[in-house]
Design a binder for these strands. Structure first.
Lengths: 336, 336
DNA sequence: ATATACAGGTTAAACGTTTCGCGATGAGAG
DNA sequence: CTCTCATCGCGAAACGTTTAACCTGTATAT
C-alpha cells in the first residue's frame, strides 16, 4: 500500500542504500538529491518507523506514565515535558495507570515493548521490581513527584517538607496553635514528607503535637470532604486546616459549603495546587503551589541528558521549591 | 541484549516457527508448551513489538489526539476511552496539540508513523486535508466533540444545540428576558451549535435577539473574565449569563469574585462542564454537564467496530444528550 | 491394508529499514 | 602518466517477527 524506500529507489534508478543515506543526511550528489526529493513527494513516501526502530533500536520516543489523566497537576507537568522534548525531536507516549500498581506494571511493560528510549514516570510506590527491570534493559527512567527507596534513578520532586513547613508556619505566625492536617495515604512518599514538614515546624515553634489533628486521607475528593467534617466536629476543633493535595482540597471546600462554615471566621484553610481553583472560591483560597512547569522541564532535561549518553554515574535528585500564596482564607488570631 | 524468539528456539530445541505458533495461540504439544514456557521465563523473553508490527501491519494501538491535556473535559474523555480499549487488548498513545492546527498535523503524522490501528481525535477544525490523508491510508478515525464538513468519518458529539437551548430556557422560564451568552470563537463547530440553541429558544419563546448580548470569547479563562465584565458594564446589562465552556466559566466566576458581584441577586449564571467546580463555588453553580464518560465509551466502541472490519458503509453520527443541573446561581424574577 | 485426516513440527521467505565493506570515478599531486 | 585519496553509489546482510507451504507420523474410516 504505502510507498517504501524500495519504491523510491526504483523511481529514481538509485539503490535503496543511497536513498537511506539521503534520508539520514549522508552525502548524495545534488542531482540525485533532487531526484530523490521528487520521488519522495510524488510517491508520498514516509519512513516506516517500525522497520527503522527494529534496525536501530531507537525510536525517538519517550514514555510518560502518570497516576491519573484526570489530575490536572500531572497533566500540566506532562504538558511542559512535551514542550521540551518536542524541541529535540522526541515524541511522547502518555499512559495513565489509574493509581493502580498492577496497571502501572502493565503500562510500563507496554512502554518497554514499544521500545521507548526513555521513561518519565510518577511511581505509585510500594513495589519497584518492575521499574528495576526496565532500568536493567538500559532504559533511563526519571521519577517525578515521588521518590522511591532501593532504586537508583534520577528524581524530580517538589520540596514537600518545606512546602508543608511554610504553610503551617503561616498559620502559626498568625496566632494559630491548633492546626489540623489532612494528609495523604500512609506509606506514600509525599504524605510522609509533608507530614515531616508539619511536625518540624511544630517543633521549631515549640508547639505540642495533637495526634487527633493529624488525619490520613486518600488523596481524593471524598476523603477531603469527610475529614474536614470530622475535624470540625471535634470537641476542640482546629482553628486552621492544611489540606495536602488538590483533590482533597476540593472535597474540603465542598464540605465547607455544605455545612455553611464561614471561612476564615470559623476555620482558616490552606489548600494545595491549582491556582485557578483558588481564585474561583470565595474567599480566595490560600494555597501551596507546586512548580509544575519546572518539574516537567527539569524532568525532560534530565532525561535528555541521559539519552545523549551523559550517564555520568550517580543519579541526581532535584528538589524544586514550592510557592506559598496567602489569600483571605487565613485569619489572624489576636489573642492566643 | 534482550532475548529473542531465536534464543527461545535454541533453548528448547524447537524451531522458531513453533515458538511463534505458541506465542500466537497455536497448537503445541503439552510437553513442548512446558519447555517453551520455562525458556520464556528463564530468558525473560518478550515479543519485540516493532518486529511484530512490521510483519503484521497491526500494532494493537490506537492514537488519541486532543486539543489540550490541561483541559479536564478532554482528559476525562480519554480516561473512559482507555477503559474500554484496554479490555480489548488495545493500548493508547495520547497526544496533545495545544489547540494548534500545525501541531495537530504533526502529531497526526506521528501517530500514523507509529502505525496506530485507529485514531480518536478532537479536531481543531479549519483544515481537513491531513485527516483525509490518514483516512486514505485506511486508518479509521473517530472524531469527538466537533464535527467537520467535507469529511467522511464517524463522529461522537454532545447535543450542543439542545444543551444551549435547555440552559437558556431555564433562564426564560424563570422570567429572564435579557440573557447574555459568552460564546466560543467564531467558526468553531461547538460555538455555532451552542449559539444555534440560544437563537432557537429565543424564537420559540418569541423573545427578540439583542446582538449586544452575544459575545464571542476564546474558550479560555481570560476571555471569560473579560467578557463577563463587559456584559455587566452595559447600560442595560443582562439578568442572566450563559457561559459556554469550562475555562470561560472559570474566568467568569473570577470576574464575579473580583468585582464583588452577588450571584444570583445581581446576575444569574449558568456555566459549562465540571461538576466539581460547580460544587466548590458559592452559591453552587448551575451547569450544563456533558456526558464525558458516554462520549469516551461511545467513541471507543465505534472505533472498535471499525477495527473489527465492520466498516459497514456510511459513517455515523452520535449526538449524546447533556444534562442540566440547576442550582442556586439562577434567580427567579417575579415581575417581568 | 489402504486412503484420509489431522495434529504438530519445520523451512524459508518476507516485512522495510540501516549499515558495513567494497568498487567505481575523477581530481590533484608527484 | 601513474598513484593516492576523497567522494559517492551499490550489494548484501541483518534486525525479530509471522506465515504459507510442506513434511511426518499417528489415529480413524473404509
Amino acid at each position: 500500500m504505502a510507498a517504501t524506500i524500495k519504491d523510491v529507489a526504483k523511481h529514481t534508478g538509485l539503490s535503496i542504500a543511497t536513498i537511506s543515506k539521503y534520508i539520514n543526511g549522508g552525502n548524495v550528489l545534488d542531482k540525485n538529491k533532487k531526484k530523490i526529493e521528487d520521488a519522495i513527494k510524488t510517491l508520498d513516501f514516509r519512513v516506516n518507523e517500525l522497520a527503522r526502530g527494529l534496525k536501530t533500536n531507537r525510536t525517538m520516543t519517550v514514555g510518560v506514565l502518570i497516576l491519573s489523566l484526570e489530575n490536572i497537576f500531572f497533566t500540566s507537568i506532562i504538558s511542559s515535558v512535551e514542550n521540551v522534548l518536542l524541541q529535540y525531536g522526541y515524541s511522547t507516549i502518555i499512559c495513565d495507570c489509574r493509581s493502580d500498581l498492577e496497571i502501572e506494571k502493565a503500562k510500563l511493560d507496554f512502554l518497554v515493548s514499544k521500545k521507548v528510549d526513555g521513561i518519565i514516570m510518577v511511581p505509585h510506590g510500594g513495589d519497584v521490581v518492575h521499574i528495576k527491570k526496565a532500568l536493567d534493559k538500559n532504559i533511563p527512567i526519571v521519577l517525578i513527584d515521588r521518590m522511591l527507596k532501593n532504586i537508583e534513578c534520577d528524581v524530580v520532586i517538589s520540596d514537600n517538607i518545606n512546602a508543608a513547613y511554610d504553610a503551617v508556619e503561616q498559620f502559626i505566625i498568625r496566632g494559630h496553635r491548633r492546626i489540623g492536617i489532612i494528609a495523604g495515604p500512609k506509606k506514600i512518599y509525599t504524605t510522609e514528607e509533608r507530614l515531616k514538614g508539619y511536625v518540624r515546624v511544630h517543633e521549631d515553634y515549640a508547639i505540642g503535637l495533637d495526634g487527633n489533628l493529624i488525619r490520613y486521607g486518600n488523596y481524593d475528593v471524598e476523603s477531603g470532604y469527610r475529614i474536614l467534617g470530622e475535624l470540625m466536629e471535634m470537641d476542640n476543633p482546629p482553628t486552621g486546616i492544611f489540606v495536602t493535595n488538590y483533590e482533597m482540597t476540593l472535597g474540603a471546600i465542598m464540605a465547607v459549603n455544605d455545612k455553611n462554615i464561614i471561612i476564615p471566621d470559623e476555620v482558616s484553610l490552606i489548600g494545595f495546587d491549582n491556582i485557578q481553583m483558588a481564585r474561583v472560591v470565595k474567599p480566595p483560597l490560600s494555597i501551596v503551589e507546586q512548580p509544575v512547569k519546572g518539574i516537567g522541564e527539569t524532568a525532560a532535561n534530565v532525561l535528555l541528558k541521559r539519552l545523549s549518553g551523559e550517564n555520568g554515574g550517580i543519579p541526581s535528585i532535584y528538589r524544586l521549591k514550592t510557592e506559598m500564596l496567602i489569600k483571605d482564607s487565613v485569619k489572624t488570631i489576636i489573642n492566643q
